[in-house]
Amino acid sequence: KRVEVKPYVLDDQMCDECQGARCGGKFAPFFCANVTCLQYYCEFCWANIHSRAGREFHKPLVK
């Protein structure tokens, strides 16, 4: 058996893009583990950032 640990998915993290400004101060539910991102995102910022060319295939890690 093999266990994969993702220590970078933490609870209670603010969106790295808007710092809570676009999501009413809620914590960010998404983390993008792609090396070009490596950031936490609220729903609004995830949709906005990941609609751009080259990022549309990134998969979010959801808390």
Results as ranks from 00 to 15, higher is better:
3 V>H: 11
14 M>P: 12
54 G>R: 09
36 T>H: 10
35 V>L: 10
48 N>E: 14
12 D>T: 07
44 F>Y: 14
19 Q>F: 07
34 N>L: 00
31 F>D: 00
4 E>Y: 05
29 P>A: 12
58 H>T: 02
33 A>H: 07
10 L>A: 15
4 E>S: 06
52 R>N: 12
50 H>Q: 01
47 A>Y: 08
56 E>G: 09
4 E>W: 03
49 I>A: 12
39 Q>C: 10
22 R>K: 12
7 P>W: 02
61 L>E: 15
56 E>T: 07
22 R>D: 05
48 N>A: 12
62 V>I: 08
14 M>W: 04
7 P>F: 03
50 H>M: 00
51 S>D: 15
54 G>D: 13
28 A>G: 04
51 S>M: 13
15 C>F: 02
38 L>M: 15
19 Q>S: 10
27 F>M: 11
11 D>M: 05
45 C>F: 00
60 P>Y: 03
42 C>K: 00
39 Q>M: 14
14 M>G: 06
15 C>D: 01
9 V>R: 07
47 A>T: 11
55 R>L: 13
21 A>Q: 07
14 M>R: 07
56 E>V: 04
54 G>Q: 05
53 A>L: 09
16 D>I: 13
19 Q>D: 10
9 V>P: 10
59 K>Y: 04
21 A>V: 09
19 Q>L: 14
1 K>S: 03
5 V>Y: 07
32 C>S: 01
33 A>Q: 14
61 L>T: 14
11 D>K: 10
9 V>N: 12
49 I>D: 06
38 L>S: 12
58 H>E: 03
2 R>Y: 02
25 G>K: 12
15 C>G: 02
52 R>K: 15
53 A>D: 12
45 C>G: 00
39 Q>P: 01
21 A>K: 14
30 F>S: 06
56 E>C: 06
21 A>W: 03
23 C>M: 06
60 P>N: 10
61 L>P: 07
25 G>S: 07
21 A>L: 06
35 V>S: 12
4 E>Q: 09
9 V>G: 09
61 L>S: 15
25 G>I: 02
43 E>D: 10
48 N>Q: 11
22 R>Y: 05
43 E>K: 07
34 N>K: 08
43 E>G: 07
38 L>F: 09
22 R>E: 06
50 H>R: 01
49 I>Y: 13
61 L>A: 14
31 F>L: 04
61 L>K: 14
29 P>S: 12
36 T>Q: 10
3 V>R: 09
2 R>E: 14
16 D>Q: 15
45 C>M: 00
37 C>E: 01
54 G>K: 06
40 Y>M: 05
14 M>F: 10
14 M>H: 04
21 A>T: 08
2 R>N: 15
14 M>K: 14
15 C>W: 01
28 A>Q: 04
26 K>R: 11
8 Y>S: 15
50 H>T: 01
12 D>N: 11
60 P>T: 02
55 R>C: 06
40 Y>H: 09
15 C>T: 03
24 G>V: 09
49 I>C: 03
11 D>R: 10
6 K>M: 11
4 E>T: 08
1 K>W: 00
55 R>W: 13
12 D>I: 04
53 A>F: 10
60 P>V: 04
16 D>F: 15
51 S>I: 04
39 Q>K: 15
9 V>W: 08
55 R>H: 08
12 D>V: 06
44 F>M: 07
61 L>W: 07
48 N>C: 11
5 V>T: 12
51 S>L: 11
53 A>S: 13
47 A>V: 06
33 A>D: 15
33 A>V: 08
13 Q>G: 03
29 P>D: 09
54 G>F: 07
9 V>I: 11
47 A>C: 04
45 C>R: 00
51 S>F: 05
15 C>V: 02
18 C>N: 01
62 V>F: 15
17 E>W: 05
4 E>A: 07
42 C>Y: 00
23 C>T: 09
18 C>M: 00
7 P>N: 12
41 Y>T: 04
12 D>R: 07
52 R>M: 14
26 K>S: 09
23 C>H: 06
37 C>W: 00
10 L>V: 08
36 T>P: 10
12 D>A: 08
37 C>S: 02
27 F>T: 10
58 H>S: 02
39 Q>G: 13
47 A>H: 07
50 H>V: 00
25 G>H: 06
55 R>Y: 15
41 Y>A: 01
59 K>C: 06
34 N>M: 03
50 H>C: 02
57 F>L: 14
1 K>G: 06
53 A>E: 14
29 P>V: 06
21 A>G: 09
57 F>W: 13
19 Q>R: 11
61 L>C: 14
58 H>F: 00
14 M>I: 09
27 F>W: 07
42 C>E: 00
58 H>R: 01
2 R>G: 09
58 H>L: 01
26 K>T: 10
8 Y>V: 09
26 K>C: 05
58 H>P: 02
18 C>H: 00
28 A>T: 04
46 W>H: 04
59 K>G: 05
41 Y>L: 13
14 M>Q: 11
33 A>W: 05
20 G>V: 03
62 V>S: 09
11 D>H: 08
19 Q>W: 05
31 F>V: 02
54 G>W: 05
22 R>A: 08
7 P>G: 07
11 D>E: 14
15 C>M: 03
32 C>H: 00
10 L>H: 06
8 Y>G: 15
34 N>T: 07
41 Y>F: 09
46 W>T: 02
1 K>C: 05
